[in-house]
Nucleic acid binder design. Structure first.
Length: 260
DNA sequence: GCTGCATGATGAA
DNA sequence: TCATCCTGCAGCA
């Protein structure tokens, strides 16, 4: 489900199959006006920024999609089956059909709107952005590092699972004030996010554990084997009871032993 | 059939 | 900090 890896993977996979002339519709009806504008025109490119997708059309039109918590894509080969009633937008390209379900955003935006959107985003590890802006702002911030990494203006693409797992892998207590960490700690955190997001983009799912450590074969990993602390009762590394806490409406998991 | 919950984000108070 | 929006599913009567 949707953290940055999902979005970049969707862009990579959809790009070669949708670029070209597309039929665009809104079976559910809530994007009917936008779909009418795009229908029959040619898609030029698909770009991912953090958790945002931008579909660029040859006409200059820009389609902004954000999956939010529930959004997802269903893909099918053309000709596609009839859409389910909840499909906000169907894009039927030359080689594939993509149905968009339950997005937070599915809207046409203008170039100024895109600038505003991108201006609110911090560097994105999956775009190979330079980490300086993140590192420098974090070095000055008094906010807890666990709150800060979910803030898309600090670093783009991290969600609740990667927050818990990235901080675990770096041995950092999420409550630590961001500025109290050392420069190498903040640097390692950025690098860790780069690694786990890239792995997630390739695999199409979040796996942050080392299968040898967990004692399973990579191909046999069940959901509970894929994370050290997220969604766990006990730490998959040290077996201590995993702590959890609601912060800003999101559940935060951490290991009190491995993250000091 | 209901309730609650989920890998997200926003706007009002 | 809270309510709200988006959807589907598990768990329970």
């Amino acid at each position: 489900m949707p953290e940055g890896h999902t979005i970049h993977r969707a862009a990579r996979l959809q790009r070669p199959l949708l670029v070209g002339e597309c039929r665009v519709s809104s079976p559910q009806g809530r994007f009917a006006d936008g779909a009418a504008v795009l229908d029959g025109t040619r898609l030029a490119a698909i770009d991912a920024y953090g958790k945002h997708l931008i579909y660029r059309w040859e006409s200059g039109a820009l389609l902004h999609v954000h999956l939010g918590l529930f959004g997802r894509f269903l893909t099918s080969t053309t000709p596609p089956p009839p859409p389910r009633s909840s499909v906000r937008c169907r894009i039927e390209g030359p080689k594939e059909c993509v149905d968009l379900i339950g997005p937070t955003a599915c809207e046409l935006i203008d170039p100024a709107g895109l600038d505003t959107l991108l201006g609110r985003l911090g560097p994105d590890p999956l775009r190979d952005d330079a980490p300086q802006a993140f590192l420098e702002r974090a070095a000055r911030s008094r906010r807890p590092i666990g709150d800060l990494v979910l803030d898309q203006s600090f670093i783009a693409g991290i969600g609740n699972v990667y927050r818990a797992e990235g901080l675990f892998l770096c041995g950092i207590d999420p409550h630590r004030e961001a500025r109290s960490l050392t420069d190498p700690q903040r640097g390692a955190l950025w690098e860790t996010f780069c690694q786990v997001l890239r792995a997630g983009e390739r695999a199409g799912r979040i796996v942050t554990t080392d299968p040898h450590e967990i004692g399973v074969t990579r191909s046999r990993m069940r959901r509970r084997d894929r994370t050290y602390v997220y969604g766990q009762d006990t730490c998959r590394r040290c077996d201590a009871a995993v702590r959890q806490e609601m912060r800003g409406g999101r559940r935060l998991w951490w290991c009190p032993e491995c993250q000091r």
